[in-house]
Design a protein around this nucleic acid. Structure first.
Lengths: 198, 198
DNA sequence: GGGTAATCTAGAACACGTTCCAGCGTGACA
DNA sequence: TGTCACGCTGGAACGTGTTCTAGATTACCC
């Protein structure tokens, strides 16, 4: 897969880093209130105290902005999960439990979740590097939860991919009101059976 | 789940049915050329020979229009699959084969596929009834491919859901250039293992 | 401290999805 | 045939994502 022409991000000054954080924080805040459509670029810029053009310099589109927000949030979940790993008999149980925890985390701010996930699935090729990064974090979350002694087998990696697909798609159906949390749990548990298969 | 207030679609006259088909055909044509963003409501209306307001009377948003297009296309695949069912040893193989065929069908018009899938995943709650319909067709496609003698078991239905999630999400990753066809095939085959599990 | 290139600001401008409106057909019913 | 209700038309108008420009500020190097 081709990597888009990304000139290896020049290091940001302190002020710039602060601006970036302000923007991300504002985006998350607006999203928490009204979801995807409440994140309006002009308002993000105003609230973050930055010109519209600057906002676009940091995040080339609304989708980029929200995907970056998702990276941020997932990172938090990952840190938290590493501090308190799920306890369970087998890898499948631990993974399902970990993902359900993450799910409940998202559930606490459903509008924010909606905004981030809409952005994630709406992303076109120009955002694929960033979306890939999100996918990588999710994969790491799952692998962590498996708590393996040895490196994962080919079959386990294949199973992780399917679990990731299921996680992602189940999230979407839940957000659009087409599946209950209970159903999501069942779907995740079903997918996780792949981990303990021969 | 609440069904949105849909006054049970009054029957369309012949002219109206023709308009609807013209609109859908135009949408598919524009999408085939340039994907999601090439489907511009003004252009659809002009090309289909209807006023913009009329277009919106038939399809309340661009997403509705493209989801309806997807329903249409899926229906075609389903008819075709029923005429030429996949031959394979076990249900899992047949399902994987059927889905890969559908995949290749979409691959033939990648821009159209992109437009439809972007719409599908971007859809919010106001489109959930239509999206659900797409999901139902996909489910039927899979169940058909299983070629069961008896009604499916609870486990099989759970597996079908995960396969559907995988199908859907794999499609998205392929469209955004983050997974190859070969990878999609592997993912589908992995998910289909759930069908032949004890 | 001075010069210079990069970055930031304010705001106008543009594109496209969506809404709205006034008036014209058209088909159903008396 | 008259009339009434409904759908359709053409087009203006609005909102929000995105782009662009001219000038102010900042960061960096000598």
């Amino acid at each position: 897969m081709t990597t888009s022409p990304r000139p290896a991000a020049p290091p940001l000054t302190e002020r710039q880093e602060a601006r970036r954080r302000r923007i991300l924080h504002t985006a998350a805040q607006l999203a928490s209130r009204g979801g995807f459509e409440a994140v309006q670029m002009r308002e993000v810029a105003d609230t973050a105290g930055v010109a519209l053009g600057t906002l676009y310099r940091y995040f080339p589109s609304k989708v980029h902005l929200l995907v970056a927000t998702m990276q941020d949030q997932l990172q938090l979940f990952q840190d938290q999960t590493r501090k308190h790993p799920a306890a369970g008999e087998d890898p499948g149980t631990r993974v399902a439990e970990t993902l359900m925890r993450t799910f409940r985390g998202l559930q606490r701010e459903p509008q924010l979740a909606e905004a981030m996930v809409r952005a994630l699935t709406f992303a076109d090729r120009s955002v694929s590097a960033e979306v890939d990064q999100v996918s990588r974090i999710t994969g790491a979350l799952i692998l962590d939860a498996m708590g393996l002694d040895q490196p994962p087998t080919r079959e386990q990696l294949a199973a992780v991919r399917v679990i990731e697909h299921t996680w992602h798609s189940a999230l979407v159906t839940w957000l659009s009101g087409r599946a209950s949390i209970a159903q999501v749990r069942i779907d995740l548990e079903t997918a996780c059976k792949l981990l303990t298969m021969e």
